[in-house]
């Protein structure tokens, strides 16, 4: 994907994703997040949902190596139960180039059962010419 073609308001991706207990457990282990509450409530760590949404957006964009996150905003209106099917979507909210670096902002949304479980905005800095 040519990042210079991305326009604010453009939908980047919409996808159904399984939020499996195994995926959540792998995330929690890797992140070192050992809160017992997730298992007690049967829900996944909210940042696991955030990471999943980001990964889907990054994959859709084929983000070049060398890109870095400069900012993140997340709201978690409701927890996501392990085993849920989630609808993940991402759209472009800003795209500009300054001093050889592309600044890209994406809006992220995760819905489960028709209700919003996560809203987010991610800001990325991508060196121009990075592959």
């Amino acid at each position: 994907m040519d990042l210079s073609d991305l326009e604010p308001g453009q939908t980047l991706m919409e996808r159904r994703v399984a939020v499996t207990a195994e995926r959540a457990a792998a995330y929690a282990k890797a992140a070192g997040d050992g809160c017992a509450l997730y298992a007690e409530e049967g829900v996944v760590p909210p940042m696991a949902v955030a990471a999943l949404a980001l990964a889907e957006a990054m994959t859709a964009m084929r983000l070049p190596a060398g890109a870095v996150h400069t900012g993140q905003e997340f709201a978690f209106p409701r927890p996501v139960a392990a085993g849920s099917q989630a609808s993940v979507s991402a759209s472009v909210s800003a795209n500009s180039v300054r001093r050889g670096t592309r600044f890209l902002a994406l809006d992220l949304r995760v819905e489960v059962g028709g209700e919003t479980a996560l809203e987010g905005k991610t800001s990325l800095a991508i060196p121009e010419g990075a592959e």
Binding site: G32, D33, Y38, V43, M47, F74
Partner: peptide, 22 residues
């Protein structure tokens, strides 16, 4: 997020907001 979950439990999971700059 882990710190907020440990401190506020389900309230964080069902209404938390996080805004961060790296």
């Amino acid at each position: 997020s882990e710190m907020m979950t440990a401190s506020f439990g389900i309230a964080w999971l069902s209404g938390g907001r996080l805004k961060a700059r790296f």
